[in-house]
Amino acid sequence: MHLSTDPWVWIAFFFTLSIFTFLWKDNFLYKLAENVTVGIGMGFWIVLWWNQTVVGQFWTPLSTDFGSNFHLIIPAIMGLFMITRIIPKYAWMSRYALAFTIGSGAGFGLPRVIQGGVLQQLYATLLPINFTSVGLGYNLIIIIGTLSSLIYFFFSKEHKGAIGGVAKLGIWFLMIGFGATFGYTVMARLSLFIGRVLFILKDVFGMHLF
């Protein structure tokens, strides 16, 4: 065992333990670490925003080639309107920037939602059914599962009779899906916890585990 001599590792160790103290109760060390990460995170993004967005995407194109980038002045003016939200009397002016962002975002998303969110999902569901292990063990179950789960979410008709039976089958598929997702998430969180424990044992205390 060789204790780390890197002060940065000990700083990370201190904040790691500070966060773990929350398991006992909300306390001074946890709140300190929480606010330190909020401040440093915000500072990190401010610097990144300045360097990469303001200078990189706005100021440099305007200052080096104003002729072909002068149109950037228009969104900049709309962006300035956005800041009017600070002054309640003129807050309505921010609607222009919001309207452009929402409208163009909706227009940008509309064909992509049809393509990726609806058609691709349907295309991936309409699978060939044949008497093979894939056809019966995979494709048929996916088709039945998707249709029955969709019927469960169809509230325009009362879930009675045949519709009710299919909807009940949909609940089974949904429960298995939620269980699988939950199990997967539990394992992901546990692997994160193992990662922090390994950091303490290997990086801080210098243990050679494997």
Binding site: I102, G103, A106, G107, G109, L110, V113, I114, G116, G117, V118, Q121, L122, A124, T125, G137, Y138, I141, I142, I143, I144, G145, T146, L147, S149, L150, Y152, F153, G170, F173, L174, I176, G177, F178, A180, T181, Y184
Partner: peptide, 28 residues
């Protein structure tokens, strides 16, 4: 993960897709 979970997720994804489609149309 690949079969019943995928079927449930696909139904949810289709619902989200149709919902998003309607919302974008309502906005425009």
């Amino acid at each position: 993960l690949n079969v019943p979970n995928m079927a449930a997720k696909r139904a949810i994804a289709l619902g989200v897709g149709l919902g998003s489609l309607l919302m974008t149309l309502k906005l425009i």
